[in-house]
Each structure stands twice: as C-alpha cells, then as structure tokens.
Amino acid sequence: MNLRRLPLYATIAIFVAAYLLCWLQFPNILSTRVAGNLLTDNAYLGIAAVGMTIVILSGGIDLSVGSVIAFAGVFIAVMLRDTGLHPLAVFALLLILTTAFGAAQGALIHALAMPAFIVTLAGMFLARGIAYLLTLDSIPIDHPFFESLQKAYWLMPGKGRLTLLGVLMLLSVLGGMLLAHRTRFGTNVFAIGGGEGTARMMGVPIGRTTILIYAFSGFMAGLAGIVFAIYTAAGYPLATVGVELNAIAAVVIGGTLLSGGSGTVLGTLFGVLTMGLIQTYIVFDGTLSSWWTKIVIGLLLFLFIVLQKGLLKVGLSRRTA
C-alpha cells in the first residue's frame, strides 16, 4: 500500500465512523433526506474545495475563493437585473471572467516569484472590492429560469432530494478527480507540489501549469458562485466571507498535504461532507452550540496535520532504513 494513500482512508474512516455515531444517536440521520440536504447545502463549498485541492496539491494556496464567490453572486444578480441576457449567457460570461481572474493570479505568482499567499490576498481584496463597487445591497434574483434550477431535483427513494446543485458538486468532484489523477496536467500539478526545482528539471512547464492551476481554481470559484446564487436566490457582496478558509480546511481534513504534492480530490469530498455532518449533528442535537463546529474542525485540522507530519517521518525513516 502506498503510504500516501493513508490520509484518504483515514478521512473516509472518520466520516463513516462519525456518521455511525450520529446514527446511533439519531437514527433519522441515515436517510436519503439528510444525505440529499448534506449534498445540496455544501454544494458551493464542495465545488470551491475541488479547485482549492488542485491549488494546494501544487503547493500553493488561493485566498481569493470566498471573494470570487461573492463577486459571482453580485455579478449574476446585477446582470440579470440590468440586462436582458439569459442566465446561461451570464453564467458563461461570469465563468470566463473568474477563470481569467484566476489565470492572472497564477501569472503574477509565476512572474513575480512571490508567495501565492500574498498574491491571492490581493486577489481576495480586489474581487470583494469589485463586488462592493457593483452594489452594497443584497440583490434578489427572481428570474423564472432560476426558479426552475432551484426546483430541479430527483426524488430518491425515502423522499430525499438529490438536487441539481448536489449533482453539480458530485460532477465537479468527478471532474476534479479525472483532472488530478488522470491527465498529464494533473501529474504536473503533483510534480510541482513535490518539488518545483526537480519538476522543472524533469521538463514540467512550470509557468503554464501554474497559470492553469489558478485559472482552474478561478473557474471552480465562479461555478461555486453560480451554485451559491441559485441556492440563495440573491447576490450579496458580504456573502461567503471566509469560505476560502473552510475550503482549505476541507482539503486538509480530506487528507491533502497542505504543503503540496500529496492528496486526492475524493478525500476533499469527504472533508466537505465531514464538515457538513458536524453541522447537521449540531442541528439534530439542538442543545449543542454552533461554535463546536469550528472547534471540532480545528481539532480535525490539527489531527491531520500531525498525521501527515508523522507519515513524512515514517516515510523517511523507512527509506533510509
């Protein structure tokens, strides 16, 4: 077994164990209804986290995600209000914008040889600032096409709803898995995350790959923004503050090494679901307070970071032994 896979199994095991514990206490939690809601409620986060996974696998970070999602919502709301464009056309336009935005961040990171942290920090300010410039209010979206998107679902056995949004997230994860694990680009991402200097010597096109990585993250953030706009039926520039942090947490809890080079997109899905499950449990319990979510997520982060550190050590000693 590859040692590198261990965190993925740990993630899945933790999710399954947690779900079982929840089920013992609240048998209702094991229903398609709860499962459907888990997917729908966390759809935008899951989609953003797929983009973040690719970024983190390459050893980078993208702090602009939450702001880009907020910008997307505002952009969609304003365009639908002020122009006669069809939502699909607006979506296309938005995705082009956010992808270009991400690509520009990647280009700056590569061209300036500066830490991704600080470049995407500027991107975070910029995207939210532009959202503010568009509006300071929450703009409702009441396009008929939007309503049909919101209501699109497939009734699972047990009356659970598998919504379009939930499906979109699962498809994103699937797409992310293919991209990360089954394309040359994906291997290049892992290669850069494993060691940029070595990757360069092995002929990986660093500049092009870096730009594509952040462009992909921008695209996924845009898609997450669309999903969030459909989910809330509004565009609000103050929305989704700190979502980048949740996405990073989901990626790490999903077993991806925060310093890059090791991890899976599937794990991120379980990271997102675990975080969602904690919230669901707190709702079911009714007496527990919401802040336990943050504390438990913090503990899980610590656990996984230490686990990864331990694996690194074991891996090294095993090799030299």
């Binding site: 590859n2 590198r4 293919l178 089954r182 394309t183 040359r184 994906g186 291997t187 290049n188 892992f190 290669a191 995350g193 494993g194 060691g195 070595t198 990757a199 092995m202 002929g203 990986v204 080079g261 090791s262 891996g315």
Partner: peptide, 23 residues
C-alpha cells in the same frame, strides 16, 4: 525525481500514454 509520484509516473512524466485524452 519526485518521491511523491509513483515509479511509473516518474518514468513517464511528460510522455504518459493517453487514451481518450486521459492518461
């Protein structure tokens, strides 16, 4: 080479055989 990639990935990096666009 990159210790975080498999032996096959290391050997074929940049010239992975593809089927239907996927490695």
């Amino acid at each position: 080479l990159l210790p975080n990639l498999t032996v096959a990935e290391n050997l074929t990096l940049g010239r992975q055989p593809r089927r239907l666009g996927l490695t």
